[in-house]
Design a protein around this nucleic acid. Structure first.
Lengths: 335, 335
DNA sequence: CTGTTAGCGCATTCAA
DNA sequence: TTGAATGCGCTAACAG
């Protein structure tokens, strides 16, 4: 068993208060005594037990990070941003990845507890009213990233506008038959991402009087493979779309694969726009909607620290910009 | 402030011992009393303070996960595997990402402490003797993943053999001029990855009497962009290699980019083999050395739990297999 | 300047 | 079956 503060005190022939004082510089200590204490600490290889310290201070020195869709490059990039700030702080990080709806429920119920964490960052999850109850009730400083809520500080983006802009661009190139590939509109986490991007897609079409063709919208798991299958269906339609807007870059890669499978030339026969601008989008020369992934993590944690320092702070909602990055998967439609 | 066990006891008109008993089922409780306690718990929305519990039990219920190169898809896949097991357990996860040599040092010194964590998984870092001192000394159950050490349980793979096999395959196709692109042989973390894969590369060449051409070996940061630059140098050599073995899939993508830049046909003018078999390798149709990334995380945590249940367990080293996955970036050399 | 003491919230032993 | 007391390791207030 590791040495405790008592062992150090005994060896240095002082009281534990003195040891604590040199540990935390909490009050002046005679130089001679300090040396003795330091020597004892070194000799015993003493490190203060963090649990004891936490209990005494009533703080956990721990930030909770809740993150779904963890396998996707976009989420990892967000987490990296968050970790970059966290690593420079005095806080430890408690990581909760959520893969299933039941995990989501359990985590959102049990994680937001004073005594478990001092602050919480929740990525890409829109709290329900019930979730909110648990969070607010427990009174632990919380920030949402890539989510919006009228009662919680958050870092968000305008999915509707971003999607609208992407589709507008396709329309501007001359496309009329534009497909959309997304996650299920009602996914198991109750996310709004697909709905919002679909809304932007519809808005852009309506604006110029292009009717919404339900056959042009495919929903399914957000994997490359599923996107490939969905694209195959789209391209086998009697009147296939000449452009496809994908909910994410990962899906856009699946679209590219499908085009390759069918020997459809991108961008001359088929234009493709993705979403996120993950690292690999550059490699794939993908036209895509860039969002500030890394930055969102950075700002989320920074905002959390602000809130923790000033719990009575008025609600702060930061909107991060998006930007259409045109590369080489978009061109005017054939013919 | 949240309710404590005392509040519950008072409201239920029992002692705190009784509350603790119903919380933990640690001793029989009269059904009537139990009901009262449960009611009080519900009414106060009481959740046991984990710090108090930790201090009392002398356990943190916390597993430390140390992970470098966190931005790379391969590492994320390892972490995902680890999280899948951890999420099913009763342990919380404390995440430490290491980006710099100084972070590495600090983390390896301060994280392995009883009282901070109950167990530790370290990914892809070979402890020095000094690191080892801190780890062993503190006596916290530890498992290495993608690293080997004579005194620590570990999950590893045979980098030398895997690299040798990859280069052998190229030789079998008829290649004689084979380039190798890697991380710095002496990277800031003291990693062995590049050295081992280089060794395998050399062994394969020597076996068939091909001289090692130092110009064919490029070292640099493990990013797509750096790999692209290094490949450009390689391909501009008076006698450019006809095949390139890359230290990682991410680098292999950079090699592909360089080939594209120079209008070099892959695989007919240039063969490429990567390493890892990350998700995107499939998309890029990359021939690569598959290692069991997700599995390594799973097994690492499982092994850790074994060790925690049986601290006196004899040293266990598990070698995970690798496998050459042939896709469409390899072919016989031109001419 | 420094030793002693009283909690922090909980699990657990010891009595009853 | 239960309440009261003890201690986990630490910080901070109190008293010298």
């Amino acid at each position: 068993m590791p040495a405790t503060i008592h062992d150090v005190a005994k060896k240095a022939k002082v009281g534990i208060g003195t040891v604590s004082s040199v540990l935390n510089n909490s009050r002046p200590v005679n130089e001679e005594t300090r040396k003795r204490v330091l020597a004892a600490i070194a000799e015993l290889d003493f490190v203060p037990n963090s649990t004891g310290r936490r209990l005494s201070l009533g703080k956990t020195h721990m930030i909770g990070v809740v993150i779904p869709y963890f396998s996707t490059p976009a989420q990892v990039e967000r987490l990296r941003g968050a970790m970059s700030v966290l690593a420079e702080s005095d806080y430890d990080v408690s990581l909760f990845t959520v893969e299933t709806a039941s995990q989501r429920k359990k985590i959102l119920e049990t994680v937001p507890h004073r005594g478990r964490i001092d602050g919480l960052v929740i990525f890409s999850l829109n709290p329900t009213e019930e979730d909110l109850y648990h969070i607010i009730q427990k009174n632990v400083p919380t920030v949402l990233v890539e989510a919006k809520h009228p009662n919680l500080h958050n870092i968000h983006l305008d999915d509707v506008a971003a999607a609208r802009e992407a589709v507008n661009y396709l329309i501007g190139l001359g496309h009329q038959k534009i497909g959309f590939i997304s996650d299920a509109l009602n996914d198991s986490f109750g996310s709004h991402f697909s709905r919002n991007r679909y809304k932007g897609y519809c808005q852009a079409l309506k604006k110029v009087g292009i009717p919404i063709n339900p056959n042009y919208h495919q929903q399914g798991k957000v994997t490359r493979e599923t996107a490939r299958q969905m694209t195959l269906s789209l391209l086998k339609l009697p009147e296939p779309p000449t452009a496809i807007f994908a909910y994410s870059d990962v899906q856009a890669l699946g679209v590219l694969e499908a085009a390759r499978d069918l020997n459809v030339d991108v961008p001359n026969q088929l234009s493709i726009i993705g979403y996120d601008d993950i690292e690999i989008a550059y490699f794939a020369r993908l036209t895509t909607v860039r969002q500030q992934l890394y930055e969102s993590g950075v700002k989320g944690v920074q905002l959390l620290f602000e809130v923790m320092n000033n719990p009575e702070m008025p609600l702060k909602c930061i909107q991060l910009p998006t930007q259409l990055v045109v590369r080489q998967t978009t061109a005017p439609p054939p013919g």
